[in-house]
Structures are given as structure tokens and as C-alpha cells.
Simulated assay, not measured.
Amino acid sequence: MSSTVRPPVDILIRRLDPELPLPAYAQPGDAGADLVAAVDAELEPGERAVVPTGIAIALPDGYAAFVHPRSGLAARCGVALVNAPGTVDAGYRGEIKVIVVNLDPRERVSFRRGDRIAQLVIQQVEKARFHEVAELPGSARAEGGFGSTGGHAAI
């Protein structure tokens, strides 16, 4: 089986803080490029903060960037992103900021300037045209909502 590797998409980036690294992929094949904190931040249990990253980007039309959490921070520290994934639209030119929350019930979480706090995934997105109808066509799932397909044993 052969795979087709698409060339990378060119993203214009403005470094708002010249001392911080640009987003980078840690390993070959990674989907997300690491974003770092531009400032120190301390979060008590249950506290959230908006952490700047020191970069702004210009995406081509038809693309969006999505700010995803880092799984290691979630597993080790209970850190999550409030609006995961955060969406960066093609027309946005401001600084990318990460809304982090400390979900650990007991321990404070500290971020230092330069710490990797999230990852940026660039994706091609489709534009949709919405057509209002009186009724939608049927499907196997129909109106089954949250958890309607099962997946774990009931307690």
C-alpha cells in the first residue's frame, strides 16, 4: 500500500516575543506543534488562566488552527483546556492564547515561561452552505444523543 504525503502548508508567523521558540513538532509524524507559555502562571486547584504564547499567525483561506491539550500535562498534573480545542480562524491575526484550567483537587500547577503548554494542529476546513428543511432524512442513529451507542458497563 502506498501513501501519499502532502507537502506542508506554509503558515506566516509573527514572533511577538523574540526570546521564545517558534512552534515546533517534537517528533516526525506529530500532528501538533508545541506552543509555549510566554509568561509564568500559577493555578490553584479549580483555577483557570489565559496564557499568551508570544506568537500570531496568518492562515491561508480554507485552513484553521486548533489548540489542543498536551496529554502529559493532563495525566501528570490534571491540566486541561477550557475550550478544547480552541479554534484559530484564518482571519484572526492576534496573539494565540491558551485557556488552561487546573482540575487537580489538591495540588497547585505552575507554568514557567518557555514551558510547553499546548499543541497547535493545522487543518484544512470546509465551508458549508446551510439549507433549512422541514424534516431531516432518516438515519440509523436518528435522534439518539449522548451515550446512546453505549461503550461502557452501567454502574
Rank of each mutant, 00 (worst) to 15 (best):
S3C: 06
T4R: 13
T4L: 14
V5Q: 15
R6F: 06
D10Q: 14
I13K: 09
R14D: 14
L16W: 02
D17F: 01
P18C: 10
L20M: 10
L22M: 11
A24T: 13
Y25A: 03
P28R: 15
G29V: 13
A31W: 13
A31L: 14
A38P: 05
L43A: 01
E44C: 01
P45M: 02
G46N: 00
E47H: 08
V50G: 13
I57D: 02
L59A: 15
P60A: 05
G62K: 08
A64E: 14
A65M: 02
A65V: 03
V67E: 02
H68A: 11
S71E: 12
L81I: 11
A84N: 01
A84E: 06
A90E: 08
Y92I: 09
V98N: 04
V98S: 10
V98E: 05
I99K: 11
I99D: 05
V100A: 10
V100D: 02
V101Q: 01
L103T: 03
P105Q: 09
R108W: 01
V109A: 04
V109L: 01
R112G: 07
Q119Y: 11
Q123V: 09
Q124W: 13
K127T: 12
R129I: 14
R129K: 12
H131M: 09
E132F: 08
V133F: 06
A134V: 12
P137G: 07
S139H: 13
A140M: 12
A140T: 15
A142C: 09
G145P: 01
G147E: 07
G150E: 08
G150Q: 13
G150N: 11
A153L: 14
